[in-house]
Design a protein around this nucleic acid. Structure first.
Lengths: 265, 265
DNA sequence: CGTCTGTTTGATCACTATCAACCCCCGTGG
DNA sequence: CCACGGGGGTTGATAGTGATCAAACAGACG
């Protein structure tokens, strides 16, 4: 895209571009043009790294969409994240020096290579780089914490709703429309990510569509009521079975106690 | 305990002791006795840090048991982890410079303070320290990934079983018995951690007890069949990667009509 | 035009949450 | 010393959410 320059027929980026991509304010005054990081392209379906593979480089997504997955003893995939522009890949390999997850391109991708050795050597000279790395890793950790909180506490509908909001926010941060976008992943992958089945994901999207919160056309999603999606806990009873929801919900909302929280839209 | 020395009526540890505690092989030849980190004691129920509090120090557990929690908009706690000896606290505060979670002592605790500023300054002189930090953060990340995988894919029974095995392993790593130990947390906290209700946790423990996998007496747990607990499954989740597993799944499904549906592998 | 993958929708099942009652342990105060 | 209270734990009955099984449809593609 915009970042990077040609050399030997390949794209390269300097440190400032890398930091910009990561949304990390880097006041780094390095002799930029000497410190270049190479880009690599991956086509849809290609694997960037696999579980157990020897770790030696981190990746930053410059363009494209990916998924990272864990694979259990039966070969079932568990989706961990959907990295896109500005996200870092491979951090889980630092500890054991072997990648703990697998990264797969969901579209054609352009990634920036950060050889870990080179990075740490660089840190020795420019110690500000340390803080950049700490910041990125900490951010990743916080994200995963939020994910754990979501999986542990929210209903299927709330998970799907938050997933959509999260996607919208990320698209917005990338300069794309947050109101209309295309899912790059299948229902099955979304379900795996959210701890649900693909049928539940599909049904929930359909329900949101009926209520008017979103529009759904295959992989094209239109966000109509972002605010409702953000605060959604549970869906109002779809057909009939009306138990004077308004009053009851109000009463429940008022006492905002500890446990179950219903349908606060 | 063993680590640390007295000075001004307080305990202090050097860098080597800190690294040992973290199980990180640190070939650091620093003038040890000059680089001391202070200990602090917390009593049961005390908070080490709270959400939103300004971040300035990391903590390493020298002794005692804690929990870290997220608190949602209604005041509900979501337990994220149960740190114990050798674990690091506060990493989630690096990114935003404010702690993202709350840490509470479940027993009287002895923690080592790692002022973050001091740590990064130290990294400038002793660059091996960088790798220690990266390693610890990466390990934390991998742990959380495993947690996400567990919450997303495993049944209630499998979660409780793995929780027990994980505790046993950690006690073993600390030099305690892995066959008989005391839970430091309530059923409610376990449930929150595992994305279950306290009743489900209680029932599952009772069921394991009846089957002879463990013994339960209030908070005292005896592990009788660690292997069975490790491999306990249920719910061959999704037909994501349907291979020649069809026969096996069918066989499992056939005998799943009984009351005891504990499909071990 | 058939095949294959992904999606939608329906019917049913069952795992786990919820509601409720009771028990156990322990500390406290009459 | 015992009554009392309260937090934590166990167990039972019931309901509901989401998984499972099943069928049909829509695009993509050779």
């Amino acid at each position: 895209m915009e970042a990077g320059r040609q050399r030997q027929g390949r794209l390269w980026s300097n440190l400032k571009e890398v930091c910009d991509l990561l949304h990390i304010p880097a006041a780094i005054s390095v002799n930029n043009e000497e410190l270049l990081f190479q880009h690599v392209q991956f086509k849809t379906g290609q694997r960037v790294h696999t579980i157990g593979q020897a770790f030696d480089t981190l990746y930053i997504v410059n363009s494209g969409f990916l998924k990272t997955v864990l694979i259990d003893e039966f070969g079932n995939e568990q989706v961990l994240s959907f990295p896109m522009k500005g996200d870092m890949l491979g951090v889980d390999g630092i500890h054991t020096r072997h990648y703990a997850s697998e990264a797969v391109a969901l579209s054609d991708c352009d990634l920036i290579l950060l050889p870990f050795k080179k990075l740490t050597a660089l840190g020795r000279v420019h110690s500000e780089l340390e803080n950049v790395m700490y910041g990125v890793m900490s951010r990743e950790l916080v994200r995963e914490q939020a994910m754990i909180g979501m999986l542990g506490a929210l209903s299927a509908e709330a998970r799907v709703a938050r997933f959509l909001v999260s996607l919208a926010d990320r698209f917005a941060a990338m300069g794309y429309s947050s109101k209309l976008f295309n899912l790059r992943m299948t229902r099955h992958e979304i379900g795996s990510y959210l701890g649900l089945t693909l049928e539940t994901v599909s049904r929930t999207l359909s329900a949101f569509n009926e209520i008017g919160l979103i529009t759904v056309d295959q992989r094209t999603i239109g966000i109509k009521d972002a605010e409702a999606l953000k605060t959604l806990r549970r869906l109002p009873p779809s057909r009939s079975r009306a138990k004077q929801t308004t009053k009851q919900q109000k009463a429940e909302a008022d006492q905002s106690g500890d446990d179950q929280v219903l349908a606060a839209v």
